[in-house]
Measured scan of single mutants.
Amino acid sequence: RTSMTEEYRVPDGMVGLIIGRGGEQINKIQQDSGCKVQISPDSGGLPERSVSLTGAPESVQKAKMMLDDIVSR
């Protein structure tokens, strides 16, 4: 199975929601999608934060859908 890494961007203000209490939400995204999700520690003052998604292409797609779902709330 091919693994890929894709850079994705999320609004900086949503990072807390994506990570969740004690990392609960980000762990759920990783478990449900099978994709490794790494959020860059700092946006460098930019409105968006970089997130790197690593996994099989379908896992990366699923993680993106889950991120979009959180961001659109």
Rank of each mutant, 00 (worst) to 15 (best):
70 I>N: 02
16 G>K: 10
31 Q>Y: 07
28 K>M: 10
71 V>I: 11
19 I>V: 12
47 P>Q: 12
3 S>E: 15
68 D>A: 06
31 Q>S: 08
72 S>I: 10
64 K>C: 02
55 G>D: 01
1 R>A: 06
11 P>C: 03
36 K>R: 11
60 V>N: 02
41 P>V: 09
13 G>R: 15
24 E>K: 10
6 E>Y: 07
67 L>D: 03
30 Q>G: 05
72 S>D: 12
19 I>R: 10
54 T>M: 07
25 Q>Y: 11
63 A>K: 01
43 S>H: 09
68 D>S: 08
48 E>M: 11
53 L>H: 01
40 S>P: 13
35 C>S: 03
56 A>G: 09
1 R>M: 15
42 D>I: 12
44 G>F: 06
55 G>F: 00
71 V>P: 02
36 K>Y: 11
41 P>G: 11
58 E>H: 10
10 V>M: 14
28 K>L: 05
16 G>S: 10
15 V>R: 04
59 S>K: 06
15 V>E: 12
18 I>W: 02
62 K>G: 03
32 D>K: 11
39 I>E: 01
4 M>N: 07
35 C>A: 12
49 R>H: 14
50 S>N: 10
25 Q>V: 12
13 G>L: 07
49 R>D: 04
65 M>T: 13
3 S>Y: 15
2 T>K: 13
16 G>F: 03
36 K>M: 12
21 R>F: 07
39 I>C: 07
69 D>V: 07
19 I>F: 09
24 E>N: 09
64 K>T: 03
9 R>G: 05
63 A>S: 01
48 E>T: 13
62 K>Q: 11
29 I>D: 01
71 V>F: 07
3 S>M: 15
40 S>H: 10
71 V>R: 06
57 P>Q: 08
23 G>E: 13
23 G>L: 07
57 P>I: 05
15 V>Q: 05
11 P>Y: 01
38 Q>H: 15
42 D>V: 08
70 I>E: 03
52 S>W: 13
65 M>Y: 05
6 E>M: 15
40 S>W: 06
10 V>W: 01
27 N>R: 14
22 G>I: 04
10 V>Q: 01
68 D>F: 03
12 D>G: 11
51 V>L: 14
48 E>V: 09
50 S>C: 14
57 P>W: 05
1 R>E: 15
21 R>H: 13
37 V>W: 00
19 I>C: 09
7 E>D: 12
57 P>H: 06
50 S>V: 13
65 M>G: 12
58 E>C: 05
72 S>Q: 14
9 R>Q: 15
49 R>A: 12
70 I>W: 04
17 L>W: 09
73 R>F: 07
37 V>D: 02
70 I>F: 05
22 G>H: 06
68 D>E: 11
39 I>S: 02
44 G>Q: 14
33 S>F: 03
66 M>D: 02
72 S>K: 11
60 V>W: 00
47 P>D: 13
62 K>N: 03
36 K>L: 11
3 S>K: 15
71 V>A: 08
54 T>I: 06
55 G>W: 00
44 G>H: 10
44 G>D: 14
69 D>E: 13
37 V>I: 12
6 E>W: 10
62 K>W: 02
9 R>D: 07
63 A>I: 00
17 L>N: 08
14 M>Q: 05
36 K>G: 03
14 M>K: 12
55 G>T: 01
9 R>I: 15
10 V>R: 01
20 G>Y: 00
25 Q>E: 13
50 S>D: 05
5 T>P: 02
68 D>C: 04
31 Q>V: 06
22 G>Y: 06
49 R>F: 05
46 L>M: 12
73 R>G: 15
44 G>P: 08
25 Q>G: 13
2 T>Y: 12
26 I>Y: 01
12 D>N: 08
31 Q>G: 05
6 E>G: 06
44 G>T: 12
5 T>I: 11
35 C>K: 02
20 G>L: 00
2 T>F: 14
50 S>I: 15
15 V>C: 06
28 K>I: 05
57 P>D: 02
30 Q>C: 08
71 V>Q: 05
34 G>M: 04
11 P>H: 02
6 E>I: 10
63 A>C: 06
7 E>W: 09
16 G>L: 03
16 G>Q: 12
3 S>D: 15
69 D>F: 05
24 E>G: 06
68 D>T: 05
22 G>P: 02
39 I>R: 02
58 E>D: 12
5 T>V: 07
20 G>I: 00
27 N>T: 13
27 N>Q: 12
35 C>I: 01
49 R>G: 06
50 S>L: 10
57 P>T: 04
21 R>W: 04
67 L>E: 02
45 G>C: 07
44 G>E: 13
16 G>D: 15
14 M>D: 06
48 E>P: 11
7 E>K: 09
16 G>W: 06
27 N>V: 08
14 M>I: 13
14 M>L: 11
5 T>K: 08
36 K>H: 11
37 V>P: 02
40 S>R: 12
33 S>H: 01
43 S>C: 08
10 V>C: 08
48 E>Y: 15
30 Q>R: 10
67 L>R: 01
40 S>E: 13
38 Q>W: 08
18 I>C: 02
41 P>W: 05
23 G>P: 04
6 E>H: 11
71 V>C: 11
43 S>F: 04
47 P>N: 08
18 I>T: 05
51 V>A: 03
22 G>E: 10
49 R>T: 12
46 L>V: 09
33 S>E: 01
66 M>V: 03
47 P>H: 11
20 G>T: 02
2 T>S: 15
50 S>T: 13
29 I>H: 00
6 E>C: 14
5 T>A: 05
8 Y>K: 03
61 Q>S: 11
27 N>G: 08
39 I>W: 05
54 T>F: 05
17 L>K: 11
45 G>N: 09
55 G>E: 00
23 G>M: 08
49 R>E: 05
31 Q>A: 09
32 D>E: 09
51 V>F: 10
33 S>R: 00
7 E>N: 09
22 G>Q: 12
68 D>N: 13
14 M>G: 04
5 T>C: 08
53 L>F: 03
8 Y>I: 11
58 E>N: 05
51 V>C: 06
52 S>A: 09
34 G>P: 00
56 A>T: 15
18 I>S: 04
59 S>D: 13
51 V>H: 00
49 R>I: 09
57 P>N: 03
12 D>Y: 06
66 M>Y: 04
6 E>D: 07
6 E>A: 12
53 L>W: 00
28 K>R: 13
61 Q>A: 14
63 A>R: 00
42 D>N: 10
55 G>I: 00
29 I>C: 00
71 V>W: 06
36 K>S: 11
26 I>W: 06
60 V>K: 04
62 K>P: 01
33 S>W: 00
29 I>K: 01
9 R>T: 15
37 V>Q: 01
8 Y>N: 02
21 R>C: 13
69 D>N: 09
1 R>F: 05
35 C>D: 02
13 G>M: 11
12 D>V: 09
40 S>V: 14
40 S>A: 14
38 Q>V: 13
47 P>R: 09
58 E>I: 12
19 I>G: 07
34 G>N: 06
53 L>I: 10
43 S>I: 09
34 G>R: 05
38 Q>E: 15
25 Q>T: 14
62 K>H: 06
28 K>S: 05
57 P>F: 04
43 S>W: 06
35 C>T: 03
68 D>Y: 03
42 D>E: 13
4 M>A: 01
30 Q>K: 07
41 P>N: 08
58 E>L: 05
45 G>Y: 05
54 T>A: 05
7 E>F: 15
61 Q>P: 02
49 R>C: 06
2 T>G: 11
43 S>G: 12
67 L>T: 02
29 I>F: 01
17 L>A: 14
61 Q>F: 09
8 Y>P: 04
8 Y>T: 06
66 M>S: 03
16 G>T: 09
21 R>I: 06
73 R>I: 14
7 E>Q: 14
68 D>M: 04
30 Q>T: 07
